[in-house]
């Protein structure tokens, strides 16, 4: 039988292996995504349909409202679409984790000398990369339907960065749901009642000013709107910040604080539940 003598790389530090384990699992998850191309295709088709629906069907009606704020509807819409798309994409983190937990491979992982939390880290990092791919596709789609950057490339990329940071924070939130769900189907079903009000009672598609006053407070301050307002200001310019009643800098900082706080709460909570679940 086999001849190579094996000794593990003991001289490497604990942190080296923590990072390596997370990357190994990330790679495994990315290969999984690539091998089911349908999942990427369908997770792109839906947001494209949203773009077409809002841009060409509802846009005419909503556009008269956004033009009062000094923004064409397509410029108003696209940053909202970016955030909405990756928020929906983050649900995949919970679904994927719940799926993992149902499989025998997780038992094998736990009998290995690998870092346990690498399963969570590898899952969220893979979803971050997947969201990056999706957002690039959506940016191209945006340009095709008439979206134009109102600031400069640096601020635009900062906007993309905030969108991705928000997606990463949401991934950890949905990780929590995936870990609490008995199976992947339930994880999926549990995610949407949470995601729907966040997405639609927000500033993503329509100006909050048009909503009834009892809804306006929530719609203005909930985290998805905060992220959308920041991304929109960084992509469209001060007009968008003004429309949200603030400045670009303040909006960006608020969004970053939201994301960091979410991460500080969600990461230890998920790791804890994960340890207890397995």
């Amino acid at each position: 039988m086999a001849t190579t003598t094996v000794s593990s790389d003991q001289h490497r530090s604990k942190f080296f292996w923590m990072a390596t384990d997370a990357l190994t699992i990330t790679k495994r998850n990315l290969i999984n995504y690539v091998r089911i191309p349908q999942s990427l295709v369908f997770s792109t088709i839906q947001p494209v349909m949203f773009v077409l629906l809002f841009r060409y069907v509802f846009g005419g009606a909503i556009g008269s409202e956004t033009s009062k704020l000094g923004l064409s509807y397509v410029d108003y819409l696209m940053p909202g679409i970016f955030i909405q798309t990756i928020a929906f994409g983050s649900v995949q983190t919970g679904v994927g984790l719940a799926e993992d937990l149902q499989k025998g491979i997780i038992e094998r992982f736990h009998a290995l000398p690998m870092t346990r939390s690498a399963v969570l880290a590898g899952r969220t990092i893979a979803d971050l990369i997947r969201n990056l791919v999706v957002i690039v596709i959506m940016i191209i789609v945006g340009f095709l339907v008439g979206f134009r950057i109102g600031t400069n490339i640096g601020e635009f990329l900062a906007g993309v960065g905030i969108a991705l940071l928000f997606a990463y924070a949401l991934s950890w939130f949905f990780a929590l749901i995936g870990l609490a769900a008995p199976n992947s189907e339930t994880a999926q079903v549990m995610a949407f009642p949470l995601l729907f009000p966040l997405t639609f009672a927000s500033s993503a598609f329509v100006p909050v000013q048009t909503m009834p006053s009892w809804l306006r407070g929530f719609a203005n301050h909930q985290p998805l709107s905060v992220a959308v307002n920041a991304a929109r200001s960084l992509m469209d310019g001060p007009v968008a910040a003004h429309a949200a009643g603030s400045t670009t800098g303040d909006l960006a900082i608020t969004a970053i604080i939201w994301c960091v706080v979410l991460l500080i709460i969600m990461i230890p909570l998920s790791v804890n539940i994960y340890r207890r679940r397995v």
Binding site: T4, V6, S8, R12, T20, D21, T24, K27, R28, M114
Partner: peptide
């Protein structure tokens, strides 16, 4: 993958 998670070097 299992080799790497066993903390073997890439080559091994």
């Amino acid at each position: 993958m299992i080799g790497r998670l066993n903390h073997l070097s890439k080559q091994v």
